[in-house]
Design a protein around this nucleic acid. Structure first.
Lengths: 326, 326
DNA sequence: GATGCTGTCGGAATCGGTTCCGGTCCGGGA
DNA sequence: TCCCGGACCGGAACCGATTCCGACAGCATC
């Protein structure tokens, strides 16, 4: 009633462990077609599953990717989903590390039991993470704000996303813009860049710590006709605020949010969003990491995926959108 | 420049591997105090980190917990956070499995490379999952709706949460109740139970597939004065709907939502929520699993953690709440 | 003084794969 | 006919820990 091992398969097929191993490892060298077929059949019959621990021990590869996430996961789940899908396709698994505790930081630096690391939005600098063996780990970082020591850095297109939002507002002939964010960073920078590109005067920038209501200040300040919020929640609150003071969205003021779309489309009005391609990015990051792990490829430093703009009712009035479609 | 192994430590300390292993494995038998101290010091000096793969191979334990999550993680993150924290405290790691693809189901049944499984809200029956060795895996299921074969089942208190919501509304002297949910299930059942307990007539039950707007139907149907939504988003939409037809919240209608609190408190009005103790539950589940793995304890079948009721502006008018405080 | 027991420690087997090294067998070219 | 090379396969070392078993010392007991 013990589990079936490679030795069992080999014995049942009448070959040596070495041959069985070669046959199973799916490169078609060094083993005859007939033998291989027989081994594969026997293995299937016996329900053979290789022992990951043994494989890892011998090969020095755990086939595990650590993914470090902030304590508040909200908004980042699509990255996880994308990464998980790609990881399983390439024979890897994702192990979760929350960055809330100082001890986690420590562990990241001390030695992770994983072959690579996907680091999501730490918002702070970390010592370059190392593997169990002490060598630096292939790392992909999803955050524009981090300065990361040795270049194995994967930047997201947050800046580009901010610029896209700004451009969209400018395209709507809005020229008194404002932005509401939970912190300064590449998103806001990109937005500002778009404004200068379009020859607009500098927009107001409001920073609102998560949970705080800087919304009130925004809507009662100088009048604006174009508004960008860096989370759907902030956008929703702002819309409510604009309405309270008698402005209609999108006729009087166009609102754009940064965030994923499927939630925001149920708002009233449906929210126009600049949607960073989180899922694709997660998948891509995993690809790069696995390439780095298996082929020693170097993780490129500046990959940028293009954010998608989903135009909905909060930024463009219905009739104008209807016209635009023609 | 190779990594330091147990053998290195042993040699440096002038003892055998066996002794070094005993000294490090922290049970104070079978090794002299002086020897142990020396070994520990040497190990620290050399920066010794045990090789997980080798440990796993020898002990047959991966110190990995699989956590299966639905494709849409939203709302479940706190479970992950709680589970991750407790896991690291007990020396385990969480590996992520998304349940979106059929192949994942397959893998769950075929053999997971983990010592235990935390199954979150599958909403469907699965074959009892097995480990790499084909033996059934200790499993904790977070979902009241699942029929799970062999009893290793951890129920959440979703039913209890629904009942708490109903009671709260009844306590507010509301008697024309309605509930809006994305699917029927224990939450709704618990709510109904509370209604009959309170001697109220059966409330209207609206089912609204995720993304659909059954909200409209709810608010324009028969007048209600107490309302329960099974997600914060549904609640928010409903509030907007009530206002549209001239009802004020909470004076005319009390609204309660199921979900975590920190998001809902920023709504207008701040949402009263019945908040299932996801985080504590994740931690507890991990504890049970690890106990089952290491001591062979059996995972209890009906653990229920009590949902917390957070009363805010959407269900009780300000003055009444002020009075209640006296 | 021989025996038994307890507290420490070393030797060696073991977990289950992967891979190096070498051996056999066969066909083809000289 | 002899030799060489390639295809195919077996033996055995090895990865790095854990653990069983036995050895040995020291001490108490008879």
């Amino acid at each position: 009633m013990r589990r079936v091992s490679l030795a069992d398969v080999a014995k049942a097929a009448g070959v040596a462990k070495a041959t069985a191993s070669r046959a199973l490892s799916s490169r078609q060298q060094d083993v005859g077609a007939a033998t291989r077929a027989r081994i594969l059949e026997v293995a299937a019959d016996l329900g053979y599953q290789p022992n990951r621990a043994a494989q890892s021990l011998r090969t020095g590869r755990l086939r595990l990717l650590a993914v470090a996430v902030p304590a508040d996961l909200r908004g980042w789940e699509p990255i996880l989903a994308g990464a998980a899908g790609q990881a399983r396709r390439r024979g890897y698994h994702l192990v979760l590390h929350y960055l809330d505790s100082a001890s986690e930081d420590e562990q990241l630096a001390e030695g992770l039991s994983a072959d690579g690391l996907l680091l999501i939005a730490p918002g702070r600098t970390l010592r370059p993470p190392v593997g169990e063996d002490g060598v630096p780990l292939p790392t992909a970082v999803v955050d524009d704000t981090v300065e990361h020591g040795d270049g194995a850095l994967l930047r997201t297109a947050l800046w580009q996303a901010g610029r896209t939002a700004g451009r969209h507002l400018a395209d709507q002939d809005r020229f008194r813009l404002a932005v509401l964010a939970e912190s300064s960073g590449p998103v806001v920078d990109g937005f500002l860049a778009a404004c200068t590109d379009a020859g607009l005067s500098a927009p107001e920038v409001h920073i609102s710590a998560p949970g705080e209501v800087a919304v009130e200040r925004v809507v009662t300040d100088a009048p604006v006709d174009g508004f960008f919020a860096t989370t759907p929640a902030l956008a929703a609150h702002s819309v409510a605020g604009f309405r309270r003071i008698g402005l209609t969205v999108p006729e009087d003021v166009s609102v754009v949010a940064l965030g994923d779309g499927d939630l925001a489309q149920h708002f009233d009005p449906p929210l126009t969003v600049v949607s960073p391609p989180w899922q694709a990015l997660g998948a891509r990051a995993v690809d790069l990491l696995v390439d780095a792990i298996e082929d020693g490829a170097v993780v490129p430093a500046g990959l940028e995926l293009v954010a998608e703009l989903v135009v909905r009712g909060s930024s463009v009035p219905e009739r104008r959108r209807a016209v635009a479609r023609d």
